[in-house]
Design a protein around this nucleic acid. Sequence first.
RNA 1: GUGAGCGUAGCUCAACGGUAGAGCACUAGGUUGUGGUCCUAGCGGUUGGGGGUUCGAAUCCCCUCGCUCACCCCA
Length: 435
Amino acid sequence: MSETEQQPEGGARQALRAPRGTRDVISPEVERWQSVEGATRETFARYGFREMRTPIFEDSVVFEKGTGETSQIVQKETYRFTDLGGHDLTLRPEGTPPVIRAYLEHKLGHSKDVARFYYIGPMFRYERPQKGRYRQFHQIGVEALGSESAALDAEIIDMAMTWLGDLGIESLRLVVNSVGDVDDRPAYMEKLVDAQKVFLGEMSEDSRRRHEVNPLRVFDSKEPEDQPVIEKLPKIIDHLSPQNRAHFDEVCGYLSDWGVGYTIEPRLVRGLDYYRRTVFEISSSALGAQDSLLGGGRYDGLVEQMGGDDVPGVGFAAGLERIVLALPEGAETASLDCYVVTVSRDLMPQAMALMRDLRGRGLRCTADFQDRSMKAQMKAANRSGAPAAVILGPDELSKGVCNLKMMESGEQHEVSLEILATVLAEELHGTGHTG
RNA sequence: GUGAGCGUAGCUCAACGGUAGAGCACUAGGUUGUGGUCCUAGCGGUUGGGGGUUCGAAUCCCCUCGCUCACCCCA
């Protein structure tokens, strides 16, 4: 706990960097994020979900009650601090508890309709960074509160698969399982713990620890030595109560009817403690060790645990960074319609006026602001990716025209300044450069 | 928190004990008003930071910071 100053920092100038585990999302990557976000909003809207934006920090109790005081996330991975007013706050490590907090705070369950929300935003966990894992990462999540219908579970799983498929992500693998609830979980846990005790000597050190902390997670072990043991342990899927078994079969029935490919994975046990009954996970082989793109499940009981009525819920969260990583290569779209080039620097006022006019008509344009030679401006125009260059010189201006040069073909012709915007729009449309 | 690998110009890399180089990129010129090819020239690094060994360190040793991958955990 003792803080020792250990930062030589000898040199005069130490480059400033983004904090460990955080990153800057810069063009062209940021355009990929934007396209994912746009497609996400459209897809979710088709299923009746509305966006909810909650604060990125909450009173720490929100996560203690929601995520769980004993969970690893809350115990070891939160960015938790006391603000100047003495409030105990936590940067949100996941999206579900804040949504439920807001649902309760604003009495959104009042109508008894199923409340459907989605969120997109940063989450924070103090972990060792790795491929597809960051300290500030971004999640896209959905929550549906107010129904325990298996149809809802199936719909949400279907939406998740449709969504990721529409984004163009290939090699998706959907696994589903049921982890039971109060009806069958306590009895099963006893059986599981007893069974594990028999094999303790054969289990890895990590799994012996899991046995103490969270016996279910032994199923998650990747240790080779644990695999034979796991095979012999009782599976919760075989110990479900009749009603939970029926619920799970119904979910699977829907998926089968719809042709959604899935695998029942008895070993799937999600990390968060609040999951009940249906759990699912979608992974992609396009990623490394952190191959889980999306995970979710039902969390009946969580709303009550957070101080509300007994409202059932189901949802999922997906990692935006991982989705972007798994995305297929896409063509870059031009971010400019034209680049304005002047023959000499004293024409800058005319160039500025022209650009104001073009922008007013909805066209995207820019120019060189460093008084560089025309050749340099043309190089910049080329680099900018703009499909067209608009050239202004004394000759053109005296005639009230400009030279419109299409960069790809190299063709160039005079166009009256008055109709430039229209002509340009037509040219761009014709060549599919409207991006 | 644990383990392994790696940090040299904007980028990708070379030099592996004798005071740092290439390609690409960038800038300018060849073209007195025109980019993307070509040619020429130029800019650019106290080799992540600190300490040590040595006559001499990018190169060897230690510490530190960071990156990467994996464990863990999870999106």
